[in-house]
Write a protein that binds this DNA or RNA. Structure first.
Lengths: 151, 151
DNA sequence: TTGAGACGATTCATATGTGAACGATACGGT
DNA sequence: ACCGTATCGTTCACATATGAATCGTCTCAA
């Protein structure tokens, strides 16, 4: 699931190091995603799968695939395949929507709920490690900078 | 090429906001990658393709696929396919390595060099936008925090 | 009521990544 | 000189994403 390392540039001699901050951000996120996928892999999940399960658990009711796609910011065809795999794993079931025959609802199974809880624990562990690695003095500035960067 | 949005958590009431910093980082990187892929798409490239072309241009000589995979931190099978597509695009040629018959070298074409230059310009534009969006007061702290985060 | 257009899910083609298995080649120690 | 092992590229199966095209269903305006 990894992203390739970003192309290094032949440094244009402007403010020294400024060009590299963007790549540092990509690299840090990349490394973090690796850790998350590895941790979740230990309980048979991925970030994508955990995302779907978490939505369903939090909603406390079955949700249409369209709604899941919207909440997780992906296209519907992606959700079709993701739910295919979750169904094959026995973590989710498709049920017909009685009120709209176009719609298909995803319903989390008992096993899916258990797996979601395990995944959430793994995720929390990684998050703790992340927070621990963060220089406390820079935490606020990081949060501020990231907020400014996300439009 | 997008990553799904990260699962939101039912906030455990520890230090307020601290849990979310990790997700902010993933989100910011995600948005940034989107912008980069879109900018590169305008010249028919992707981050992965530009990465390969840039390595070849900077090396000023053909490189073995293994070497490219190592430099871009991906597995060799990925490089095989990436070079397949670059070759189909006419940006790269495979040539036999006379000194080691196991090895295959990737050689950037004239068109590939031109495309790399265009890609680098697109990348620089995005980077400028990135830097502009960054609160100057937080730049150093961001760089420091990201460095601490990348092991 | 009906028919045009919006909407929901799926399928297909494609891009990008991983990892295992394979065949060809290289190389070092005996 | 030969054999075991390492390395190289490829192929395959899979996971994850996008976007276009398709098919069924729904809804509203005329």
């Amino acid at each position: 699931m990894n992203r390739l390392k970003v192309p290094t540039e032949s440094a244009p001699a402007t403010s020294p190091g400024a060009e590299q901050v963007m790549f540092s951000l990509l690299g840090a996120a990349h490394a973090l995603e690796d850790r998350l996928e590895r941790a979740l892999g230990q309980v048979g999940l991925s970030m994508s799968k955990l995302g779907v399960l978490t939505q369903l658990v939090e909603a406390r009711e079955p949700l249409p695939l369209s709604e899941l796609a919207a909440r997780l910011s992906c296209v519907r065809s992606n959700m079709t395949q993701l739910v295919d795999r979750l169904e094959a794993d026995g973590l989710v079931r498709r049920i017909d929507d009685a009120s709209d025959r176009r719609s298909v609802l995803a319903s989390v199974t008992r096993l899916g709920e258990e797996r979601q809880a395990e995944g959430a624990r793994q995720l929390a562990k990684v998050r703790e490690g992340f927070t621990a690695a963060l220089p406390p003095a820079d935490r606020a500035a990081l949060a501020r900078a990231l907020a400014a960067l996300t439009p």
